[in-house]
Design a protein around this nucleic acid. Sequence first.
DNA 1: CAATCGAAAAGTGTCGACAGTCGACAATTT
DNA 2: AAATTGTCGACTGTCGACACTTTTCGATTG
Lengths: 236, 236
Amino acid sequence: MRLASKPVGLPAIVSQDLVTQIARALTDAIISGQIPPGAKVAEAAVARELGVSRAPVREAGRLLESQGLLVSIPGRGFSVRTHAPDEIDDLYDLRICIEKHAAVLAAQRMTPENRLALRRQLDVLHETAAINDPARQVEEDYRFHRLICEISGNRRLLKLFDDLASELRIVIGLIGRLYDDPQRIAQTHEPLLAAIETGDAAQIQGGVEYHLGDAWRGVAQLVRNLPSNQTTEKVS
Amino acid sequence: MRLASKPVGLPAIVSQDLVTQIARALTDAIISGQIPPGAKVAEAAVARELGVSRAPVREAGRLLESQGLLVSIPGRGFSVRTHAPDEIDDLYDLRICIEKHAAVLAAQRMTPENRLALRRQLDVLHETAAINDPARQVEEDYRFHRLICEISGNRRLLKLFDDLASELRIVIGLIGRLYDDPQRIAQTHEPLLAAIETGDAAQIQGGVEYHLGDAWRGVAQLVRNLPSNQTTEKVS
DNA sequence: CAATCGAAAAGTGTCGACAGTCGACAATTT
DNA sequence: AAATTGTCGACTGTCGACACTTTTCGATTG
């Protein structure tokens, strides 16, 4: 019996391979701060805990290493990446650079649907600013910026943004509280969106610079002050 | 008898782990075109040929996947990445974006040593333009641009540049011949260097845009015309 | 002759095992 | 007491094996 001779648009059943699942589990544990920066991630321990063998754990480790979440020292395994303050500066500097570009491109290619989607995402961000849920707010903030990169139409740029974002989440997750007043964070997105709507390149770049520079200073200050880290505790 | 109580300057012994070596071997084979885009890279075959087991080959594969040299389809292994023409556009677009930024930063942080190094690298490029060695010229060209990113002082940016460059090398290596007249390629670097020396941001950005836009158009045209690929031959 | 089916070959995903290496702590020497 | 050496446990790097899936290719059928 033939059920379907032509594709019908069903969501393909992807047997999430182990590596992906393990990577996700580790990622969650890292950005939630459950495994703190500098902590060793022993293959055997992870494998035991997840009930799998070490091989896929190793591969997941390599994956996360390429994303900047882990570092591996040959012969000594993986540990959660620590970010020196000036590495965070590098990260934000680069992020501003590509988001400027993304925003200008996005403004050029903007469709009415895109415009609506951006507006709605920003509204969501305002809503989450009301309730007190730092993790959620970071998430919605991230989505707004990601949307801009999506609209830019440059997929490689989008991938880069995702990489940078996942790296930044280590440090942002580390800072339990937000780096600024929730309401204010949501507010500073408004001029950015407004700038994009004008379509003027200089104005857009200024908007991105202003908005992200703000976030940069907030994060940088917290990171420099608080947890002079170098933690090396072991975590299962 | 005490041989050495104080360090004596012995070169540290770095046991090149297998994964790194395998990755390098595969990378060479790919950017040299020995394994063409789209070709399947079977773990077992590679392992046999190199005389190692499959485990390190898999890890090397994951590494190269993260660098954009390979793609993996779950259950079907790795194959050399093919670049659709618009992916190359994305790549160059992003490259221009970050090199603009890098050049402006580099101009700000430039020391006399840096200035000299840049000048000398450009001279080398001129020299290689004389002899006919496309691979070498691509290499020296790459080094010049990399040097700018190095001088920028943003390490994350440098890493990104390396990633983009290794991706681009697949397509550049694919085009056996150069995308332009060797002499001309070397020449178009001069105004770029001159612009950087002025230190004026707008002028520098214009210089990068002009220079890389040129390369972009050359590569894009060749890629679109010649080898409408989709090769799927098998390679040991 | 083309298309279909099915068995064999090849390849991938995962596992458990072993050898070599690293780090820590105890024993020993200066 | 300080420094060096020896020993032990834990962990990483690598390997071969097995089960399952995909691909290949020849035989069969319409």
